[in-house]
Amino acid sequence: MSGSEFKMGEGYPRILILAGETSGDQYGARVAESLKKLWPKCCLVGIGGDAMKSKGVHLLEDLEKLAVMGFYEIMVHVPFFYRLKRRVRKLLDNGSIDLVIPIDYPGFNLSVVRMAKKLDIRVLYYITPKVWAWRPSRAKQLAKNCDHLAVIFPFEADFFQKVGAKVEVTFVGHPLLDEVIPEPDRYRFCQFWGFDPAKPILALFPGSRLQELIQHRELFLATGRCLQNENPDIQIAWAKAGSVSDSVFRGSEFPVISDTQSLLAHARVALVKSGTTTLEATLQGTPFVTVYRTHPLTYLLARLLVNVDYIALPNLLMEKEVVPEVLQGSARPGHLANLLGPLFDMESDVRIRMIKNLNLVRGRLGNPGASERVASLAKFVLEKKDDNL
Rank of each mutant, 00 (worst) to 15 (best):
G164Y: 00
E168F: 10
D147G: 14
Q161K: 15
V163C: 09
F171T: 01
V169H: 11
V151C: 12
Q141T: 13
V131C: 10
V169R: 11
V151M: 06
L142H: 10
N145D: 15
F160S: 03
F171R: 01
I152V: 15
K144T: 07
T128G: 03
R135K: 15
R138C: 04
P129M: 09
V163S: 11
F160W: 03
G173K: 05
F155G: 01
C146Y: 10
K144N: 13
R138M: 12
W132D: 05
V151D: 08
K140R: 14
V169Q: 10
L142F: 09
K166V: 12
R138A: 09
C146N: 11
F153G: 05
A139H: 04
H174G: 10
H148P: 07
E168N: 13
N145P: 00
A139Y: 04
V172G: 08
E168M: 12
C146T: 15
A139D: 08
P129T: 08
K144E: 15
K162W: 05
T128N: 09
V172C: 08
V151K: 03
A150F: 06
K140E: 14
K166H: 10
T128K: 02
F160T: 04
R135Q: 13
S137H: 13
A157C: 01
F159M: 07
L142V: 13
V167S: 12
F153T: 00
K130G: 15
A165T: 06
W134Y: 12
D158F: 00
R135D: 14
E156W: 02
